[in-house]
Each structure stands twice: as C-alpha cells, then as structure tokens.
C-alpha cells in the first residue's frame, strides 16, 4: 500500500509536472488567468490522465511495439473528446472559459509522457495512482499560478475581492505576466526543494 501512496505523493511534489519536469507548459500559461480557470484546467487534465493511464496499462500487452504511439494517441484523444462533449453539455461555462485548450489536452506532453514512461510498464492500480499524483500535482501548480496572477492582476482570489482593483496590476493577467509569474514561482519552488534536500 505504501508503494501506491508514494506514487501519489511523488507526483505532487518530487516529480511535479509543472515545476520540476516542466511539462505541459501551454495550458499552464494560457489558462491560468484566474484561479478558477487554472483549477478547472487542472481537473480536466487530471481526468484524462487517470483514464488514459488506466487504459494504457490494461492494453499494454496487446499493443504491438511498433504501433504503440498511434494506439496511445487514439486512447487519449477518445477521452479528451468524451470530456469535451460532457463539458459542453453540462458545464458550458468551463467549456467557454477554456475553449481551444480542451481539445489541446491531446497534445499535452504530460499525458503521452506518463503513458510512455509509467503506464505501459506498471499494473492498473499503480497507473491510476500515478495518474492521480501527477494530475493533482498539475492541478495544484495551475491553481497556485492562477491564484497568484488573479491576486496581483485583479485583486481577487477565486472571484472574491481581496483589495480594490485599482491597486492591481493588469500586467499579471496579460500574457507577459504568465511567463514572469511562472518564472518566479519556479525559482521559489527550486529554493524550497534545495533547502529540503540538504
């Protein structure tokens, strides 16, 4: 049991896909203009990641080596489309806010990366745990980044006003703010990790 717990915590901190592995940067930067957007994108990716990991680990033995990439891509694309249709039908606000970046989950390198590096070598339960860990790590990173940008850029957190908007700097919500905030966030995470390793 410990082993599975470790898979989950691994993804959260030690192998955090955003801060440490630097994967899936496009949605990380594009959808984090507010905390709620970051959280929804993280959870959407998390869903696809867990499902894709599970299916890939189940079909790993019947997939011939030479065609494994197209097979995995087809599996991932299926779950992405399922997610896209469900969001459109039941959560249209989220679909509207994330727009083009929902279908683009297909090319998020985290998902294909985890299928290749983990799911195709491990059993179903371990793959699910890995999916949860990495997915939550990604969600955590996106929410944190979204929260910071929203706080500095609009004076709100999850839509609640913290301080008057007139004192906020719009730059943080604009594209340059995404790069710069993420840069400092990575520097901070590196610092924390460096300290804890010593």
């Amino acid at each position: 049991m410990n082993k599975y717990f470790e898979y989950i915590t691994n993804g959260l901190i030690k192998e955090n896909p955003t801060f440490v592995l630097l994967l899936g940067m496009c949605p990380t930067l594009a959808t984090t203009s507010s905390a709620i957007n970051g959280l929804s994108m993280g959870l959407a990716t998390c869903f696809v990641l867990i499902c894709a990991n599970l299916v890939v680990s189940l079909i790993k033995n019947i997939t011939p080596e030479k065609v494994h990439i197209p097979v995995y891509i087809a599996v991932i694309a299926t779950f992405v489309t399922v997610l896209q249709l469900i969001l459109k039908a039941y959560l249209p606000e989220i679909d509207k806010a994330l727009g083009l970046f929902i279908p683009l989950i297909v090319v998020n390198c985290i998902i294909l990366g985890r299928a290749e590096a983990f799911a195709c070598k491990n059993n179903a339960l371990a793959s699910i745990c890995d999916g949860i860990g990495i997915g939550l790590g990604f969600t955590f990173a996106l929410t944190a980044l979204g929260l910071l940008r929203e706080f500095f850029g609009a004076g709100t957190a999850f839509g609640l006003t913290i301080y008057p908007e007139n004192y906020a700097s719009l730059l943080f919500i604009l594209p340059p703010g995404a790069f710069i905030t993420l840069g400092f966030l990575i520097a901070a995470v590196n610092k924390v990790r460096g300290v804890s390793e010593q």
Binding site: I62, P64, K66, V67
Partner: peptide, 16 residues
Amino acid sequence: KLSDSLTNMAVVLTLI
C-alpha cells in the same frame, strides 16, 4: 506481449 507482425498491428489498429 504481442509480437510486431503485420497482422497483429493491423488487427490492433482496426480494433482500436
């Protein structure tokens, strides 16, 4: 693990 024969690949891809 299934081998890389042409039939296997065709069958798996069609199935998927």
